[in-house]
């Protein structure tokens, strides 16, 4: 048993090294003076010149701003639709269209992106022909496409959260006189709020990061950040992309660190409450 535990632990360490070495090397070389990215110019490094170049690159900044706006709207739209779909799947039992909805929310998660992208573009071309909308592809069509594939993820997150807590909570509220809308606002929504929050973050990240689907439904003048990066790196390595990667990793790491501290805090509070309950158990009014 010992030796196998050792093997697995070794694999874990090596696996984590494998996961982090590329990211770390990007971060290190972002401070390298040389244009040659992978050759360390010891005489003039570290330097922040690539960060300066990045921050004065209007094309990248413009693309990043477009990506942020699209991701904000897409994540919010996906959360609304995904929550509705998750509610229906987790709470409505067998209804007409259930199988259809379940299939259509699960499929985009595993669907190869090239197919989703192609099909959405062909849809927009067809609707433009038929009803004159949308006038060409651009930020609007990108957002519609992102909402569609992001909502699938939100649905899964919300649905599994709903499946994880007792349906009798909602029944109890109804039993005590709350109408369905009140039940949703006062019971269901507060309980699935963590799932909605993480669903939103996931949707934001997916939208922010998407390249393949976006390429299909984007038009001239609507280049998102991944599109700009892709066209830069496709024909060689550029040091300012290293700087960009470093900034993004740092933002994510900071966010995760804050979330971890917050979760630790919550955990400690829960443990205190459990102790309180245990103490209450001892003073149970048995002989009243």
């Amino acid at each position: 048993m010992k030796s196998r535990g050792l093997f697995a632990r070794l694999a874990l360490v090596l696996g984590l090294v494998f996961l982090y070495v590329p990211i770390l090397s990007m971060m290190v070389f972002s401070f390298n003076n040389s244009r040659l990215v992978t050759v360390w110019d010891a005489a003039h490094s570290p330097t922040l010149k690539w960060y300066a170049a990045l921050l004065s690159n209007g094309q990248i900044l413009g693309a990043a701003w477009l990506s942020i706006r699209i991701a904000l709207i897409s994540a919010s739209g996906a959360v609304v639709l995904g929550t509705l779909a998750g509610m229906a799947l987790a709470r409505f039992g067998a209804f007409r269209g259930r199988l259809l909805l379940a299939g259509m929310t699960a499929a985009p998660i595993v669907m190869p992106e090239v197919i989703t992208g192609l099909s959405l573009l062909l849809l927009f071309v067809a609707t433009e022909q038929l009803i004159g909308w949308p006038k060409g592809v651009g930020a609007v069509t990108i957002t519609l496409a992102h909402i569609t594939f992001c909502m699938a993820y939100v649905t899964v997150v919300v649905q599994s959260r709903l499946a994880g807590f007792d349906e009798s909570l909602e029944e109890a509220a109804m039993d005590l006189g709350a109408r369905p809308l009140q039940v949703f606002l006062r019971i269901t929504l507060p309980l699935i709020l963590p799932a909605i929050g993480s669903g939103w973050l996931l949707a934001f990240t997916l939208s922010w990061d998407d390249l393949v689907i976006t390429q299909f439904v984007a038009g001239p003048g609507s280049s998102t950040l991944p599109m700009v990066i892709f066209s830069k790196v496709r024909f060689g390595v550029t040091p300012d992309v290293n700087a960009l990667a470093t900034i993004m990793v740092l933002i994510v790491a900071t966010g995760i660190a804050i979330a971890t501290v917050w979760m630790r805090y919550q955990q400690r509070r829960r443990e205190r409450d459990l102790q309180l309950a245990a103490a209450a158990n001892l003073s149970e009014p048995l002989q009243s």
Binding site: D273, A277, A278, A280, N281, E284
Partner: peptide, 9 residues
């Protein structure tokens, strides 16, 4: 809150 109570409570 509920999680601050024992089973009997």
């Amino acid at each position: 809150k509920p999680h601050q109570l024992s089973g009997g409570q």
